[in-house]
Amino acid sequence: MVSLELEGVSVVFGGTAVVDHVDLVVADGDVLAVLGPSGCGKSTLLRAVAGLEPLAAGRMAWDGADLAGTPTHRRGFALMFQDGQLFDHLTVAGNVGYARRLQGASRTAVRAEVDELLELVGLGGHADRLPRTLSGGERQRVALARSLAARPRLLLLDEPLSALDAGLRGRLAADLRRILVESGTTALLVTHDQDEAFAVADRLAVMRGGRIVQEGPTGDVWAHPADADTALFLGYSRVLEGAAAATVLRHAGLPPGAGAVALRPSAVLAGPDLVDGIPAVVRGFRPTPDAGRLVVAVEGVGELDAVGAPGWVAEPGRPVVVRVERHAIAVLPGAATSPAGGAP
């Protein structure tokens, strides 16, 4: 069942289309992540859905009913900001219970709900604290509880975890996924962090330059990027074309394709014990705690990123044998839009 529908939605700032004819559909109970680099217009898209930015063109509907004349506060779409935007003059309980108090619920009923929600986000007992006394992760949890308390038809999440440090982000992403699934919330998430999108969303829409370039189930989009730029943004490190692409496909045991080939950093393995593979020359080596990171030159292909065996030190200039792993390769449809190379 379809809930939110966007048709040809555009938002224009000072003559420039920041959001450019976007079509999107969020089904009931789904979590859709809009993934894109900063400045691609994804936050503006989210604000437009919330009713905070006027549309220059297009149509938005909820369950078939046009949203054009509905102001933000009547949409029932709770928006969770990147930095929470908690009300600093209210306690945690005051923040979480805000929407329910507006709806006229009794003080005791609200308090019971607040305690329940705080338990859900793992902050039981924090009800009477002031937002300023909380850590960044706690503030985001309160912001999430506050948004859920409004019982929104749709939850809008603007980079909910980006302001947090890496370790906390991983843990909170798993929590967020669990909470959204448990509460059966339909959600639209925008983020520039592919890990965050991957951990939280059912479906993924990749946005670039104001347009949606690819949309589909998260795993599908990740395994089959639509073009070279999308592949690089999704964490693929090299995109090869023509003869180089054909050579790599042949060595991976895959049928030859028409388009370009994208390789993740783990697509090429190198090691001292490998004998059965492609001859190459080490160009660069950087040790990491898990494994060595190499740049190798392969004849007929060019430079590729490779992963070395743990503990092995490869000296630049030495010949080496590498193997191509087919699970870390994506064949792109059609011709690539940009030449090979470059980190994302």
Binding site: A50, G51, L52, P71, T72, H73, R74, R75, G76, F77, A78, L79, F81, Q85, F87, Y98, A99, L102, Q103, R146, S147, A150, L156
Partner: peptide, 17 residues
């Protein structure tokens, strides 16, 4: 900051609220 007011509106508060 305009965003706390926007957060309030997104939580269902009318302009007067």
């Amino acid at each position: 900051d305009r965003r706390p007011a926007e957060a309030g509106a997104a939580l269902g508060a009318t302009p007067a609220q």
